[in-house]
Computed example of a mutant assay.
Amino acid sequence: MKIKLFFLSFSICFLISKAQNIPMYVGTYTDGFSEGIYKFDFNLKTGGLSNLQLAIATENPSFIAYAPNKKYLYAVSESLGGTVSSFKIQENGLLKFLNKVSSNGTGPCHISLNKQGNKAVVSNYRGGSAAVYNISRDGKLNDASQVFEYNTTDKVSHAHSAQFFKDELYIADLGMNTVYHYKLKNNNYELTTTSIFKTTENPGPRHFALTRNGQFIYIINELSGSITSVKKTDSGFEQIDFDSTLEDTYEGKNACADIHLSKNELYLYGSNRGENSIAVFKRNKFDGTIEKIQTMPVHGDWPRNFTLDPSGKFLLVANQKSQNITIFSIDASTGTLTFLHDVKAPRPVCLLF
C-alpha cells in the first residue's frame, strides 16, 4: 500500500511540475556561437529557465513569431538575399522545417501574424520594404501577396516592425521617421495615413505596442532614446506624449530596441541598448499618457529584445552581446522589476512564449 501511495504521490508531483513548465523559443544570430532557434523550458512558478535545446538549425533567425494556435512558428533570416521560413512545432517541442520564401528585401528583421493566423507581415530593414503573405492551412507561407517599397530618391527607408490590428496594418519605418497606417480593402492593404505622428527630428521609430482596443499606440524610438505616445481618434491620430527612456545623468551612446505593455496595460516597458536597461513607465489608462517610474539594469549587454511571460509575473531580456537571458519578477501592485537570475544562451536576440 505504501509503495502504491509513493508512486501515486510521485506521479502527481511529476504532472504538477510538468504543467508549470512551458516552452520558450529563442531567435539568435548564427555567427559562430549559435546554430539556429533554441528552446528552453520556462517554469511559470519560479521564473526558471532550463533544458536548453537546439529546436532547429537555421541561419540568423533574428525574429520569430507564433501562429495563434501555436502549432507553427515563423522566422525571418537575415541571410544573403533575405528569407522567411515556416516550421511545424512537434510534440517534443522541436521544430520541423516546412517551407521558405523570399522576404522581398534584404535584412528582414521582424515578422508578425494576424489573429486569424492566415496572414504574416515581414519588415526588411536594409531593403526598405515590407511584405504581406497569405498562410496556407498547413502552416506554409505563400509568396508575398503585397510588397510595399519605401525608398525614395532622397531618403533611405529602414522598415523595422509591423503589426496587424483587426483589418488594419501599422508599419514602423526607422529611416523615414514614420509609422504608416493601412486598411484592408478587397483583400489588399491600402495606405490611409503616411504617418500617425508628425516630427521634424530624427527619432528613428523601431517597435511599437498597441493597447487591446487599438486606441493607443506606443512607439519606441531607437535613435532619440524616447517613446512617442499616440491616440487614435475619429478623425485620425493625435500625439499625446513624448518621454525619454534614459536617466537624466546618462551621457553615453544608446539605441532603444523593444517595447511591451503589461498584461493589465497599466505599465509600459522599453529596452535601452547602451544604457543597458529596461525603462519602466506607469500608464494612465484614461488619457494614455505615461510617466517613468524605474530604470532597471538588465545585468547584461545590449538588450535587443525582451518579453513578458504568459502569466504577466516575469519579464525576460535577451542580451545579445553578453549572451545571457536575464529574468525579472514584476511587482503586481507597482509594475516595477526585481532581478532574479540569468542563464547563458548563444547570441539571443528574440524571445517567444
Rank of each mutant, 00 (worst) to 15 (best):
A131M: 14
I37M: 01
G225H: 10
S224W: 04
M24L: 15
D241W: 05
F33Y: 06
L337H: 05
T83F: 13
N221I: 05
H158Y: 11
N43H: 10
T58M: 15
N104A: 07
Y170F: 15
L5K: 15
N202G: 04
Y250N: 01
V101S: 07
H299F: 14
L94Q: 12
F10M: 01
N324K: 11
L337W: 06
G27N: 09
S235I: 10
H160E: 05
K71H: 14
A209Y: 07
G300L: 08
G270H: 05
G128Y: 14
I3N: 00
F7I: 02
S77C: 04
N43F: 06
G82C: 05
F242Q: 03
C109Q: 05
D143N: 14
R206C: 12
P205E: 10
S136C: 11
L191G: 01
N254C: 07
F97K: 14
K140H: 08
K4R: 10
L5I: 09
S145T: 12
Q320R: 15
F10R: 01
T46L: 13
S9I: 06
Y182I: 05
R126T: 13
P205T: 11
I196H: 03
G48W: 09
I22R: 14
N202T: 12
Y250S: 00
N134H: 13
K263L: 13
E35Y: 05
K45T: 10
Y150D: 08
V298C: 07
S229V: 10
